[in-house]
Computed example of a mutant assay.
Amino acid sequence: MNKIKPHLALLACNCIWAMDFPFYNLLLSHYIRPLALAEASLIATALISLVPLLWERAERIDRADIRKFLGAAMLMGVLRKVFLMYGLSETSPIDGSIIDTIVPILVLLLSVLLGLDRFTKLKVAGLLLGTGGAVAVVATGHASAHYHAQLWGNVLIFLCACVSSVYMVCFKKLVGKYRVTTVMRWLYCLAAIMLLPFSVGQLVHTDFGAMLRHALMPTLCVFLLQTYLPNILFNYSLRFVSSTVSSIYTYLQPVVAIAASVALRLDKLHFDTVVFALLIFLGVGMVLRSYAKQPSRPEEPAVKLH
């Protein structure tokens, strides 16, 4: 059962993350600006992260790790949120969710560049195929059929995927060193403070009352559920499984996001989107098959940031 728990956590957190795309898109379209939504969700997550202090003592952080937490907060807290919010305000939920599935391939590429993994013919073929599918989704954002999507929005979602990949590879060792609640507390409290000077203008002009009156469920989900719960599940699982395996679960997100977006009438499913998604899935399948063909070995520690 202990071996299954991290995988159940990954399954749950990616299903929750998939709802980012339709819910954030709904709020950004009618009620709130991107920076304000990013900051509001960070503040809510930071406040929730303080709750465990009611029953557990604060964990002491090594002074050398404070700088690493600042880097993690900048990546996973600030940059990922900002890229995601501005990206979703200018693209469709379906295109955004499919572009985000490039994460496993980016994790593999980064791991190879840092000497934590190695290329094989099957991995290279899968890498090229998956990347081609993701680039195609990005490029078709300006097509007339994708009337909700724009090229710049797709590029920002791609940058969001890049940020997530760097975090998964470079901060795995840091995540494994401390309690998950400690990681969440430091990461999101720092991120909320970092972004506040840039977002306060949009934040004070947001009508949160209108959001609660007309979009209660998406608002509550975004502020109380979408950030803290999936991230604590994700960081828990990252302690026990490899970065590559963790990233593979990203491919659940388009399935959930597409179903939710179509059900909420926020988007339509296009034939070319299905084709490009299949290319990405095929590429990842080839990468996974390459791991099955090689003898397993313990994963090397993530790169130490200086």
Rank of each mutant, 00 (worst) to 15 (best):
S89G: 03
H148Q: 14
P301Q: 10
K177N: 12
E90S: 12
G132H: 13
A257L: 05
H30F: 02
S164Y: 14
M286I: 06
F69H: 04
R67G: 11
C162G: 12
L220W: 00
L151A: 05
V124G: 06
M217E: 12
T244Y: 11
L35Q: 07
R118G: 08
S29D: 08
W17D: 05
Q294A: 15
V222P: 00
S247T: 08
Y178W: 11
R179E: 12
S247H: 04
Y86G: 01
Y249K: 05
V262Y: 08
A125T: 04
A292I: 02
F69N: 00
I99T: 09
V287S: 06
L50P: 07
L109H: 04
M211Y: 07
N154P: 06
L196R: 03
A263C: 12
L109R: 10
Y178S: 09
L233F: 10
F21Q: 00
V135Q: 07
L159W: 10
K293D: 14
K293H: 10
P218W: 02
H7G: 04
L288P: 00
T120M: 13
E39M: 05
A149F: 02
L129T: 14
L278S: 07
T91G: 00
L216G: 03
I193E: 08
P6T: 07
S243E: 08
G133W: 06
I61D: 09
A44M: 11
D267M: 04
R289L: 15
K293Q: 15
F276W: 14
A136P: 03
D62V: 00
L151K: 00
A139D: 06
S144K: 15
S247N: 06
S92I: 07
T206G: 09
L278I: 12
R67V: 09
T120L: 12
Q253R: 03
C189K: 03
Y178H: 02
P218I: 01
A9G: 12
P52K: 11
A139K: 10
V241A: 13
D100Y: 08
G126E: 09
W55P: 02
Y251T: 14
S261A: 15
S111K: 08
S242Y: 06
D272V: 13
L233A: 11
Y228F: 15
A58Q: 13
A277R: 00
V155P: 01
L151I: 07
F171T: 05
D272A: 13
I94Y: 07
A161W: 07
R33Y: 07
I94N: 06
K304D: 15
Y147G: 13
F281V: 14
I48N: 11
S89I: 00
L151N: 02
T91D: 00
M194G: 01
L50Q: 04
N231T: 03
L266M: 13
V175K: 04
R60P: 01
E90H: 13
L225V: 15
L122T: 08
L190Y: 04
L159K: 04
L88E: 13
N231A: 01
V138S: 01
E59H: 05
A36I: 04
Y249S: 02
K121N: 12
R297N: 12
M194Y: 12
L229P: 05
D20T: 15
V241S: 10
F281T: 02
L53G: 07
L224F: 07
L11Y: 10
E39H: 10
G126Y: 07
I280M: 15
S296D: 10
F276V: 12
V183Q: 06
G126P: 09
R185E: 03
A277D: 10
A46P: 09
A149M: 09
T227E: 02
T45D: 11
